[in-house]
């Protein structure tokens, strides 16, 4: 039995953000964007803190990262530990297990959490990233956790020698299909149009014998009893519906930004993404945003991190100009 360890209980547990202190900038979200924003803000001399649900963000759900410059191949978790350790070198207070439910613009910015704590800062950097997009089809909610999964690395091992399906056509979907092909007997990958993943991943996909590919195919409904047992697919070319037996369905069709708690405070795109200018400024003075939560088109670690740096530098400039 191969045993590996993913040790991440911190050795240098950071201090927590204080509610009785006025910060120069508070960052909401502890993914790549938030962590890099903290590093840049702190090095500029700002009083900075991070409020987040988890430290590491979505990258923790990624098995391997092969496109972060400087690391040929690293697990998502290790990369995030490097990020966190780097930030911890600078004594930035980080409060995890904190969910922000509202931001108010009073004399200063007030950040309210679901546990009813209030934090104050002159500026706020929003880096709350995104959550998996749902298919929005009948049966999806009913069978969530009963066959339908949004985390292939978490639940994949429950389908040893099983029949599973991955929905989606991007890098995340192809990556999951490849991982699952080593566990399950058969993997199907279904996508409504053509693949938009990196060629290097598609090459690997085509080499795997136990992966069947269905393109131009939609998924209409998920069916079952106490667990899902099959799905109804629709082939857009032949216009035929089919019922396919599937034990596990992994949904990897992109993400939706986590902006629901902003309640109209700042301007959003129709799809919920925060509108930022090229410096990470939002429609509300003193509120900046970075990473997957914004309308910057490409959602990648290196991009989110870089956008976080930009937002921090913009916040610094805002404070130095005495605009708050």
């Amino acid at each position: 039995m191969a045993i590996d360890f993913s040790l991440n209980v911190g050795t240098t547990k950071s201090k927590r953000v204080k509610s009785d202190k006025l910060y120069d900038t508070l960052i909401i979200g502890g993914g790549p964007a938030g962590l890099n924003a903290a590093l840049y803000a702190k090095r500029k001399g700002l009083q900075v803190g991070i409020l987040t649900q988890r430290i590491g963000g979505q990258v923790l759900d990624t098995k391997v990262v092969e496109n972060y410059l400087g690391y040929t191949k690293i697990t998502g978790e290790e990369l995030m530990r490097e990020f966190e350790d780097h930030v911890n070198e600078y004594d930035v207070p980080i409060s995890d297990e904190m969910q922000v439910k509202q931001i108010k613009c009073e004399e200063y910015k007030e950040i309210h959490t679901t546990t009813d704590e209030v934090y104050k800062a002159k500026t706020v950097i929003i880096a709350t990233g995104s959550i998996p997009r749902m298919l929005g089809i009948p049966g999806e909610k009913e069978f969530n956790g009963k066959g339908v999964s949004y985390c292939a690395i978490c639940d994949g091992s429950l389908y040893q020698d099983g029949i599973v399906m991955v929905i989606g056509g991007g890098n995340a979907a192809i990556g999951s299909a490849l991982d699952l092909s080593r566990i399950a007997k058969k993997v199907m990958i279904v996508h409504r149009s053509t693949f938009r993943a990196d060629q290097i991943l598609l090459d690997r996909l085509n080499e795997q014998k136990n992966i069947d590919i269905y393109l131009e195919t939609e998924i209409k409904e998920i069916k079952g009893q106490s667990k899902m047992t099959h799905v109804i697919t629709y082939d857009k070319d032949t216009k035929l519906e089919k019922s396919i037996n599937v034990e596990g369905l992994f949904v990897e069709i992109g993400h939706v930004p986590r902006t629901e708690y902003l309640n109209g405070l700042i301007e959003l795109e129709n799809n919920g993404e925060i509108i930022v200018d090229s410096n990470g400024e939002t429609s509300e003075p003193g509120i900046f945003a970075a990473g997957d939560v914004t309308n910057v088109k490409y959602k990648q670690i290196v991009i989110a991190a870089a956008e976080g740096a930009k937002a921090a530098l913009s916040a610094t400039e805002y404070i130095n100009k005495g605009k708050h």
């Binding site: 988890r54 759900d61 978790e77 690395i153 978490c154 639940d155 091992s157 429950l158």
Partner: peptide, 10 residues
């Protein structure tokens, strides 16, 4: 839990 699940230890 499974051993490969990052959310499980929490």
């Amino acid at each position: 839990i499974t051993l490969s699940c990052p959310h499980c230890p929490g």
